[in-house]
Design a binder for these strands. Structure first.
Lengths: 239, 239
DNA sequence: CAGTGGTCTAGACCACCTT
DNA sequence: AGGTGGTCTAGACCACTGC
């Protein structure tokens, strides 16, 4: 196979090709992919070039490598997924695992704003999922999740939803969330959500609007979360 | 024989050594460091090993490399520094550059909590700097900055403070902020700060508590910021 | 033009895992 | 023992910079 007739460095072409295979579901999560030597031979490049592409994909959480074993497609286990994207902690504390209670789930047409954010032009149906999440037994987050049915067919027919939706997305719908974009505001707790969080209406709460991004770059899920920061904080480290 | 727990790959040893030189100020910001070949010869390792160490340092924003020119110590210009750590934007918008007005500056003893966060045991003096920051002409952030005088001697005697303090830290005090840890809460705007932000006391505001971390890993500065999220949002992308 | 970093290759040896 | 990824080396060629 010849890769040499282009502007991009070889390792980048290899990266694109392998990432493309991931996007197409050529390899499934937790499966091992071919060894460096095998890929190098197939693509007609050196082992070092394949390695550079693979290591970049590891850095982007697309792959995991284990010495002596092989290279695996990164899997969203409940723990890894929650640990990676769930930012609410105790002040100066370790990561917390939330418990989740589903409040309701319904279909409706996407709003114009949602269609814009999801990059959808057609009039499309979405599922609106309401959940309440608990930290250390206390209700801490009231969450509205928007899932386009074009991406997640019949997701509202799921019998049980896992604590981490991303696990479900990956296992049942072939959607791997590789990054999320959060926008945070302080706002007054809407009256309708007050009793769920056990706070007075109008209390200051942290509103987190999230866009979740699939490996192919599409925004495939939106969520709006109202977080009580009475006992917990949204924690980030910028490097 | 089994390798001891202290075994480190060569490139990691090179990384540690070069990072140590940066910490000690052996090379100053914006200066070029020796070429790959020169370092390889000096340290008795191959060029590839030096390159791996250098590239890791580039990934951590410690160095910048330019083909054909050389490798330079990363510099906190006002633009790069603000762009990197300043998170308030317009919704779905690009990065904004804040303007800054100093309100007051005073010395006092550090509180117990501040000593804990700064990793200082002795009774130490700090400067408490109050600033008001504007976005697009509107007051948006009321900020309290805590600077230990042991790290920044006589910083309260500075005639003018730049828009980005990190530039000053690096140029005058040899302190390079490589990462920051933020904890975010929603809270009611304290009465004392209300008039500065032009909002009613008790309005929900985003409180950002930040610890700024020097290249050697020490927390060298604290700040507490009250942000109006009426027109702006705190924006993060997690990968 | 010489010097720099960027890419690519080929091969060696090591550490780890499975069989 | 054989295969995997991890480290390290040496050398080639390319692209860019500055003189």
């Amino acid at each position: 196979m010849s890769l040499s007739a282009s502007f991009q460095p070889l390792y980048k072409q290899v990266y694109d090709l392998l990432t493309g295979r991931l996007v197409e579901g050529h390899w499934k999560p937790s499966e091992s992919i071919p060894s460096e030597m095998a890929l190098a031979e197939e693509l007609g490049v050196s082992q070092g070039t394949v390695r550079k592409a693979l290591n970049q994909m590891v850095a982007e959480n697309l792959l995991e490598r284990q010495q002596g074993k092989g290279t695996y497609v990164a899997e969203h286990t409940q723990e890894s997924s929650l640990f990676r994207f769930f930012r609410l902690r105790e002040p100066h504390g370790e990561s917390l695992i939330p418990e989740t209670q589903v409040l309701s789930s319904s279909r409706r047409a996407a709003t114009q704003k949602e269609r814009d954010q999801l990059g959808l032009t057609a009039k499309v149906q979405v599922v609106e999922l309401l959940r309440l999440r608990f930290l250390k037994g206390e209700p801490a987050i009231f969450e509205k999740v928007i899932q386009p049915l074009s991406v997640f067919p019949n997701i509202d027919k799921e019998q049980v939803l896992p604590n981490s939706l991303y696990t479900l997305y990956q296992e049942k719908y072939g959607i791997s969330i590789v990054s999320v974009r959060d926008e945070l505001r302080a706002t007054e707790l809407p009256k309708a959500y007050a009793k769920h969080l056990g706070l007075p209406a109008g209390s200051p709460v942290l509103k987190v609007e999230r866009a979740s991004i699939h490996i192919d770059g599409r925004v495939v899920e939106l969520s709006h979360a109202y977080c009580s920061t009475k006992h917990f904080v949204y924690s980030v480290q910028h490097k």
